[in-house]
Amino acid sequence: MSTPSAQRGLDDEAAATRVLDAADRLFYERGVQAVGMDDLRAESGVSLKRLYRLFAGKESIVEHVLERRHETWEAWIAEATAAGSPRSRLLAIYDMLARWFTQDDFRGCFFINSFGELGAMSPRVAEIVRAHKVGFQTTVADLVTAAGAPSSLAPQLAILAEGAQTTAAIAGDPEPAKQARAAAEVLIDHALRPA
């Protein structure tokens, strides 16, 4: 049997999860600055008093949402690149993007969106976004190394993926994932071509 303090801890954890789920949805749909604490209270069903007890403020919630999004992204990339030849694992990144871009709620990269809104005002948000992007670049670099391609290929492939995300969001069209994949194939095949 759990103690009252353990039950309160579970209750707080569940409440925090509800707040973060609501924040993730609302921030991604409307933008961070367009969503106030009252919106988060209404969407999550967690009182403002408790919300402020769980999180120091809105910026703290943004940071937590970014950290959760990072974990989701890492899981997507790991799953997409888990099997196959080194070449197919690199191309799988663009296939994963194509699946993401066709989701009804796709609004672009939450990290890019957050950086655009808050990067100049929030050093911590900028730090989290930069670390996320470096993590992706490192993953691509590791896959490029496994493929036996020159290291210069990694930033080129990462830029293709980043550009596809932004272009798909602005255009409201998933086609940039296919275009980026086609360009990646050319770059990879050129890099792997015998000298």
Rank of each mutant, 00 (worst) to 15 (best):
M1F: 07
M1H: 12
P4N: 08
S5T: 14
R8Q: 05
R8A: 06
R8V: 13
L10Y: 02
L10V: 00
D11S: 10
E13D: 15
A14H: 03
A15D: 00
A15W: 00
A16W: 00
R18Q: 09
V19K: 01
D21C: 03
D21G: 04
A22E: 01
A22Y: 03
A22S: 11
V32I: 14
Q33A: 08
A34I: 03
A34D: 11
V35M: 04
G36H: 00
G36M: 03
G36P: 00
M37R: 13
M37I: 02
M37Q: 15
A42M: 06
E43C: 03
G45N: 06
V46F: 05
V46E: 12
K49E: 06
R50H: 04
L51I: 05
Y52H: 04
F55H: 02
A56I: 01
A56D: 03
G57L: 01
G57M: 02
K58L: 01
E59Y: 03
E59L: 01
V62F: 10
V62H: 07
E63M: 05
E67S: 01
E67M: 12
E67K: 02
R68H: 09
R69M: 09
W73K: 09
W73A: 13
E74M: 08
E74A: 12
I77R: 02
E79R: 12
A80N: 07
A82F: 01
A82M: 07
P86F: 05
P86L: 05
P86V: 03
R87M: 05
R87A: 11
S88Q: 12
L91A: 04
A92L: 12
A92C: 08
Y94W: 08
A98K: 02
F101H: 15
T102V: 09
T102G: 05
D105G: 05
D105S: 13
F106C: 04
R107S: 11
R107F: 14
G108N: 07
F110Y: 11
F111I: 02
I112P: 00
S114N: 07
F115W: 13
F115C: 06
L118F: 06
S122T: 02
S122Y: 00
P123K: 14
P123E: 08
R124M: 06
I128H: 03
I128V: 14
V129F: 09
K133D: 14
V134T: 15
G135P: 01
F136C: 13
Q137L: 14
Q137V: 11
T138D: 12
L143Y: 07
A147S: 07
A147C: 11
P150T: 14
S151Q: 10
S152V: 15
A154T: 08
Q156N: 12
Q156R: 15
L157R: 09
L157H: 06
L157Y: 07
L157A: 07
A161R: 11
Q165V: 12
T166R: 10
T167H: 06
T167S: 11
A169H: 10
I170D: 11
I170C: 07
A171R: 15
P176V: 12
P176I: 14
A177C: 07
K178A: 15
Q179N: 10
R181D: 06
R181L: 05
R181P: 00
A182T: 08
A184V: 07
E185I: 09
V186W: 07
L187P: 04
I188S: 11
D189Q: 09
A191Q: 08
L192K: 10
L192P: 13
R193Y: 11
P194L: 08
